[in-house]
């Protein structure tokens, strides 16, 4: 949904269960026309969707967000203050039908989004 239009992955590294994605945001994406007019701010739900799309790469299959124990947004991201970010997905428990995972979006050293949830495979 967002990969290739809202953001692109520039580099991927895997270390055990930890998958790191260096990404770049596209500041010309149409979503900023509505969020907000004249004041582009990254929608929190687009951060959730980016995590999901990176997790799908890490797990090697399509994933549905079945439950979120928590997803915290510690900093407001804009395509100007955060054109480059790192998304770290850690697959904690992989079953046949679902994965439990944690994920973070980092802007330099700052953790901006932290997610803990269970995603169903389909």
């Amino acid at each position: 949904m967002l990969l290739g239009s809202y953001f692109k992955i520039e580099n991927t590294e895997v270390e055990g269960s930890e998958h790191r994605f260096d990404i770049a945001l596209n500041r010309d994406h149409k979503i900023y026309g509505g969020h907000f007019p004249g004041n582009p701010v990254c929608p929190g739900v687009c951060s959730v969707q980016m995590i999901r799309e990176c997790a799908e790469r890490a797990a090697g299959c399509r994933l549905r967000i079945d439950s979120l124990q928590s997803c915290r947004f510690m900093a407001v991201l804009t395509p100007d203050n955060a054109s480059r970010l790192t998304i770290v997905v850690t697959l904690a428990d992989v079953q046949d039908d679902r994965v439990r995972l944690t994920a973070e979006i980092r802007n330099g050293a700052d953790v901006c989004v932290a997610l803990k949830g269970e995603f169903g495979k389909h």
């Binding site: 967000i65 439950s67 124990q69």
Partner: peptide
């Protein structure tokens, strides 16, 4: 006011 999401907790999806 302009509201931002601070946290989503205990989200459970039954059906899309």
């Amino acid at each position: 006011p302009v509201g931002y999401i601070g946290e989503v907790k205990k989200f459970r999806l039954m059906k899309l």
